[in-house]
């Protein structure tokens, strides 16, 4: 009888050990993401489903893309979810065999005072709209914080050969999108925003221009390589990337925001 109990115990231990093997070893994935993804509520919406499907726990911090990527450099993240192609390429170019995986997109929007003194509405491209703002002498508020939105804004100014830094009509807040929209609202000035944050923010500004080709906003994930930091949770990062490709995740992303704003805020890449 004693022997039988011992056998049962051993079998039980073996089984539970085997069962444990099925579970991920490091169950916590540290994700560093951009404010537009987090503040729009997208991550809070995806997180519980991913955690249930995978058994991992996501710990999400959000900052502008520049700072979000920096957390990858300092070893404070296992995976990045960001939206600035040039900064992402600099990061993966540092030589740790990392890959940038674009998985969804949306469009930036140009917002400004309802009476639109610069005539931004109806322009064909963001570049034309920026030129119109410049010509009208209207005030433009910039994030100025090295974020993905700021990178895009700088790229548009560069495309019309304008360096706005330090100009009287250009003010740089060095703050997040929400704070920058508040400043633009108070000053009745123009700014560029991601659509999700603009819709979620309370202000009196009008959405003047959207969905031009030069305002496409691509979001990518980058798993931090174990070559960079040996104890990075590479398996967890890969599990999240794999999950993003599932029908469940794609359907959730496509449906996000439809009920609240009557339109989708993010679109899946083909």
């Amino acid at each position: 009888m004693k022997r039988f109990a011992l056998v049962v115990l051993c079998v039980g231990l073996l089984l539970s050990a085997a069962a444990c093997k099925q579970e991920p070893v490091n169950k916590v994935i540290q994700m560093s993401t951009t404010t537009s993804v987090n503040d729009s509520g997208l991550m809070a919406y995806l997180q519980p489903v991913f955690e249930k499907d995978s058994g991992y726990t996501l710990e999400i911090t959000s900052a502008g893309t520049g700072a979000a990527i920096e957390k990858g450099r300092t070893g404070d993240a296992d995976i990045l979810l960001v939206h600035s192609k040039s900064q992402e390429e600099t990061f993966i170019g540092e030589g740790f065999d990392e890959t940038r995986i674009p998985f969804m997109y949306n469009f930036f929007v140009i917002v400004g005072p309802a009476d639109d003194p610069a005539g931004v509405a109806g322009k064909a491209t963001a570049a034309e709209a920026f030129q119109a703002i410049l010509d009208s002498g209207s005030l433009f508020i910039s994030r100025g914080d090295n974020s993905g939105t700021h990178s895009k804004e700088k790229a548009i100014w560069a495309s019309i050969n304008v360096d706005p830094t330090g100009q009287a009509w250009y003010e740089s807040t060095g703050s997040g999108m929400g704070a920058t929209l508040t400043v633009a609202d108070e000053k009745q000035a123009y700014t560029i925003s991601d659509k999700a944050t603009f819709l979620a923010h309370e202000n009196s500004l009008s959405l003047l221009l959207e969905e031009t080709d030069d305002m496409k906003n691509t979001y990518s994930v980058i798993a931090i390589s174990p070559k960079r930091f040996a104890d990075t949770n590479a398996a967890g990062a890969q599990a999240f990337i794999d999950w993003l490709k599932t029908d469940t995740a794609r359907k959730m992303i496509a449906e996000f925001g439809v009920a609240k704003y009557g339109e989708a805020l993010f679109f899946n890449m083909d």
Binding site: G144, G166, E171, S172, T173, A179
Partner: peptide, 9 residues
């Protein structure tokens, strides 16, 4: 102040 560059930063 709004932390505006060259102005209130």
């Amino acid at each position: 102040g709004g932390n505006i560059q060259f102005k209130t930063r």
